[in-house]
Nucleic acid binder design. Structure first.
Lengths: 340, 340
DNA sequence: AAAATTTATGCAAACGTTTGCATTTATGGT
DNA sequence: ACCATAAATGCAAACGTTTGCATAAATTTT
């Protein structure tokens, strides 16, 4: 529009009849420059539609103002990429990062290079790394941590790690969910999910503890292990009922998506929810309240989580140590569970 | 680990006893360098965990190998950020971009600066822009297009625009969906969605055309306008039934999320699906087949779409003009619609 | 009114690559 | 053996910022 050959700092300087250093400082609102000239130059820049070359300034300052967000998918069936919860976290991180002047470089564990520190940090692609999900193996994460690169992980904050983990109180969540079913009168409560997964295993702990506290059967056969996708959950419940009949009256699902799969398997068999079987999920994805019956669940506060994660990362940028932090969860009782 | 003070090209060169130019060329696999030395240097680089400073190379080459992906949210209630379909598109774009050596910088229309070309392209943050969703207003997009910046938009490819649009054949989709209901015996078919939205309005066209072709009532009152979220759809259906009774026996929903909301409103009133009312969605999100009843829908091929969009963008990088392109859709009949 | 201080601006080097051109080394032709 | 050509490497400039230090201008102090 205005000028075709890209306008540079030097160009602006010439236009204004000052030096590049003055323009640079003025645009960065450096008080070293007299206020009037600062404003004049800023106006000039706006007028000429000037925009700083970030590649140059990143090179000079050794700071990118970019954060790499890595979706830690568990395997190649791009299943979890469909989990609305994870993607909600990405969205909220984007908001928080932008608010703090950072941009979000999206990546995932399947595509990203082997050595994350090397690829993102040493190459000046990003200043820090946020990993979403600990998955089943944490070796790559630990490797990043060992390099000392700024890092925050979404996962279970209770697992002892040499890196900062932000996450919900999963054990408590599992406990509350189970207790809610118990109080609704359930006697045979199944845990449905993947107990090898860090976060899920904590939820399983809470589940077991609640059963003990209320002295209910804590049979091993009540733990149904399956991948954390709707489809896997659907199949697991269908198979189980086929094999052993309806030997349970409550399901603690490890995520809302898992609960959705289970619900479908039950509905297809005309098993009433919550009449015959109560079911409770985890996450509180947007869809939970729109299911029929509306899904009771344990809500994870992703907005808060995103804020905390960004905050922790910024701390590390300033040389401070980062701490793991627990985000409060909240039991949301809807229609898929009986409440006596 | 190996060395703490960052290793640079010059450092590597010194280690190898050659010049920086040789190392640079070797690492870029430039045949100007003898094959043996190339391999030797690449091995050395790997051994020393060397990684190129991208800020520097971007500055020098004026190429970032980054593409900005902008989620074009319609308003500030961050509603659409919850739409799994949009996020699926982001995921697929990430795959396609990575496969072609590009990285994905995520942004959204609410946070991003006003002038997208200026912010992303002129500043050397990215080489090109992909906008997901035309939304209700396309002024920002048109502005980008007018600057000549590499741009591809996901939306309705039929709307005549001065930029390349990749999208499904929405009119055909709307037609097929409606026809499917008609063939199932529906007589009073409602269109549920937002006809002001570019893509949705095309689907509405197809809907109208199908009604005409089969000479069914094409009453204006059968077009129920609502935001494209589950919640809005739920409320719209609930209100409509309250006000006018059940005056329809089929619903063409503008997206699967909208269909989900409508389904809930029906179920709550013990209206049988598809017994009393058939319902069909659009998108085929992962969850569609896991609803009860499994949702019939018009599938959009996001993987293919992502590939095409990236391809079109790469074309523009090479100076070629980009064309709008139509992605095939597919009717998926499940259990939420009668099939006579 | 000159010296001392404060305030505002400019100079020039540096960030780490890439690449046109010059130079050296190897290969081949007579 | 010598020259012409081809292959391999090196030199040095450039990309567009930022910033320590030096300088110039304005202000205050004596």
């Amino acid at each position: 529009m205005t000028n075709d050959n890209k306008l540079t700092l030097a160009g602006l300087a010439k236009l204004a009849g000052v030096s590049t250093s003055t323009v640079s400082r003025a645009l960065n609102d450096n008080p070293l420059i007299k206020k009037e000239t600062r404003e004049k130059l800023q106006a000039l820049a706006k007028e000429h539609n000037f925009s700083l070359n970030r590649a140059a300034s990143r090179l000079r300052t050794q700071k990118t103002n970019v954060v790499a967000v890595i979706l830690n998918l568990t395997d190649s069936t791009d299943q979890s990429i469909n989990d609305p919860f994870l993607l909600k976290v990405v969205g909220d991180l984007n908001q928080s990062l932008n608010k703090n002047g950072y941009e979000l470089l999206l990546s995932n564990s399947l595509m990203a290079n082997e050595d994350w520190t090397n690829y993102f940090i040493n190459s000046s692609r990003a200043d820090g790394i946020i990993v979403i999900g600990q998955g089943k193996s944490t070796e790559k994460i630990e490797q990043v941590a060992s390099t000392g690169a700024p890092l925050v992980v979404w996962g279970d904050p209770k697992v002892h790690a040499n890196y900062a983990v932000v996450g919900s109180n999963n054990e408590l969540g599992g406990y509350l969910a189970t207790e809610h079913l118990i109080k609704g009168g359930c006697k045979q409560i199944v845990f449905l999910g993947d107990p090898e997964h860090a976060e899920m295993s904590e939820r399983h702990k809470g589940y077991t503890k609640a059963l003990q506290d209320y002295s209910l059967t804590s049979n091993d056969m009540l733990t149904l292990s399956c991948d954390i996708t709707s489809k896997a959950a659907y199949e697991k419940i269908a198979d189980t009922i086929l094999a052993k009949g309806l030997h349970f009256d409550g399901i603690v699902a490890t995520s809302d998506m898992v609960a959705i799969g289970a619900m479908k398997a039950l509905k297809e068999r005309y098993i009433s929810i919550p009449g015959d079987v109560s079911i409770i999920g985890f996450d509180d994805i947007a869809m939970a309240e729109l299911l029929h019956p509306a899904l009771s669940t344990v809500k994870q506060d992703t907005k808060k989580a995103a804020q905390v994660m960004v905050e922790q990362l910024l701390n590390q940028f300033q040389g401070k140590a980062a701490n793991s932090e627990v985000i409060d969860i909240e039991l949301i009782a809807r229609k898929s569970t009986r409440s006596l």
